[in-house]
Design a protein around this nucleic acid. Structure first.
Lengths: 347, 347
DNA sequence: CGTTATCATGGTAACGGTATCATGATACCG
DNA sequence: CGGTATCATGATACCGTTACCATGATAACG
């Protein structure tokens, strides 16, 4: 492969002048600029970013560390991140932690070694060690989707508490009193915030919060399935389910189907996070939609801003609103309901 | 940040010895190994991969260039790629081309400059220029999901022709004679292979292939929507639709709904590629499922094998079978049909 | 005992760019 | 006309690691 020196020799200039042409820098005479471009074309020269990075300390690479791209929510986040980063001249390294703190740390080690310019992190747990690690190595960081307690870092997340509150309030207004809550794991802020919203809605309506109706566990279809079996065995039986995660709602549906319970006739179901394709084919779940693309975009923009002006300033917490979409799974749509119902589809 | 020299000084050895310890190389005395590890811990030393890459010519980075991660099919491919690469000590850069040749070339330029160790490419079009470009720069390549004419490169794809043939044959056996074909763009092998399978099924059944029933266009929901409007206007009206892409099928559903046509009562619909969540909630489309995860995995394994033994050998073409899953959208399930029907769900 | 294999360590020179500083030519100014 | 701003170019050193080669100590061997 040709190097910058080969190009320089061929164009009859110094390597530095070639560097200047490549980077559109400084002052280079038209004559020399032309000759350098010619030489580059003739030699098929391609600059070596690795060498450049070693000297300049910038890799033009970001990392997106999340739990699982297969979740349509994170898929959309990823698309937002990649589009935005790409437009700004950055490439994105993708990492799936599967909610494992150990996996996450392995990835972070590698990313620090690779000298990535910045990290977008959906933390596996809310423990602040990983965040401290990143910060110790002075790598810009934006935390995405989840809060980390005791961490001083930029964070972008959806309004979990508010969304959950609205969903459960809706169920209550539909006449439900016994509402089970299928929550994600303790220690993950989105899960805990959603439980908090659930509690507030019940409390505000004067309904007693019963611990036996709330279950915690990993975000997964299997968990939703098992929790639903247990929740439906609690007497008196709940008339509605609030699932704190899209995949858990799917597991719940499966369990209900096996019990020959109809949704929404026998049990109403609401959940968090959209299932984009379900929405397109047979919209079904009433849910709180987080602005996934916007979240990825915003987070990346924030990160990029950090890269340019490194001056220390207040960490920001951007909370984007969730949108309630009413569909069949919750029963009769309430036409004049006070939520921002933008869609009320399907017979 | 501490460098390898700082560690060496502190441990009282030479930098090379430190390098050997880090890379588990060669012969290093237990005594020195211990002291180096101590020094590393005390200094919080982290090796600089950029410098290593510059010298060793290896970046431990792969690139996955695809059209759109938001398509659940590619999401799953990406997950397969990332899992496999990560296990082998590689990180993955993700690139979305949106089916644009220009975007694709932009990404490839960057990736070559970044000296990625290998590229997994879902080509935007079947023109071989991009492939030539990659090969000119001696970067290992595996083409994914689509064939590129005139390109000598490893390729991993699903059996589009066979899958389409089976789907259309199924429609014919259900009694359909007028079947519209909503195809992806000309010049994309998956689209053309599927049209070929469609043609073969009709021909084998003695049904004339009518050009007016076949439409070509970009893989998108909008295209599926518009094509369906036109296809349904052709007299005599088709009784079934074959969509060559999952998103196009969704567009088709939307168009049919607006025309107040019921599926499958008025029009049967089949399509390519699963919609995973639709499958989990209300399985609906009869379709040919490509083994997306396996494809990503296989492709990455192949690529990695290329990285180690660089000896030139025959390009491989691995064709993975598709699986036909019968669901409601095609009408009455055929119990004793000769396809590998693994699932026949939902009342 | 001399020769050779194995173990252990280090010196030197890259890898391919760019940061920094220096130098010279020309234009402009009061 | 001397001094300064702007334009244009280059020499040198260095970013942090490892490839390559050399050297010495010890063990093994005929």
């Amino acid at each position: 492969m040709a190097t910058i020196r080969d190009v320089a020799k061929r164009a009859g200039v110094s390597p530095i002048t070639v560097s200047r042409v490549i980077n559109n820098f400084d002052y280079v005479s038209e004559e020399n600029r032309r000759r350098v471009h010619e030489a580059i074309a003739e030699l098929g020269y391609v600059p070596n970013t690795v060498a450049r990075s070693l000297r300049s300390k910038r890799t033009n690479t970001l990392a997106l560390v999340l739990t699982d791209v297969s979740n349509p929510f994170f898929t959309t986040v990823a698309r937002g991140v990649e589009d935005t980063a790409s437009k700004a001249g950055y490439t994105v390294i993708l990492c799936n932690t599967d909610e494992s703190e150990a996996e996450q740390q392995k990835y972070l080690d590698v990313l620090i070694q690779k000298q990535v310019d910045g990290i977008l992190l959906v933390p596996a747990t809310s423990s602040p060690e990983s965040v401290r690690f990143i910060q110790k190595h002075a790598t810009p960081l934006v935390i995405l989707d989840r809060r980390v307690v005791g961490a001083e870092a930029d964070t972008v997340l959806g309004d979990s508490e508010g969304g959950a509150h609205e969903l459960v309030k809706l169920l209550i207004e539909l006449g439900h009193q016994r509402i089970a809550c299928l929550s994600g794991p303790r220690g993950v802020s989105t899960a805990e915030d959603r439980v908090a919203g659930y509690r507030r809605a019940l409390t505000e309506a004067g309904i007693r919060v019963e611990a036996k109706r709330i279950s915690y566990g990993p975000f997964s279809r299997r968990t939703g399935y098992e929790m639903t079996q247990r929740a439906m065995a609690v007497q008196p039986r709940p008339t509605a389910l609030f699932a704190g995660h899209n995949f858990m709602a799917i597991g719940a549906m499966q369990a209900l189907r096996e019990m020959e319970m109809r949704v929404p006739e026998d049990v109403a179901v609401v959940c968090f996070d959209d299932l984009p394709l379900d929405f397109l084919t047979v919209p079904f779940f009433t849910m709180a939609a987080q602005p996934a693309y916007e979240m990825g975009k915003k987070a990346t923009e924030l990160l990029l801003a950090r890269l340019v002006d490194e001056g220390p300033h207040e960490p920001q917490e951007i909370v984007l609103p969730t949108e309630i979409v009413i569909r069949r799974s919750s029963g009769d749509p309430l036409v004049n309901h006070n939520v921002k119902a933008s869609v009320a589809v399907e017979p």
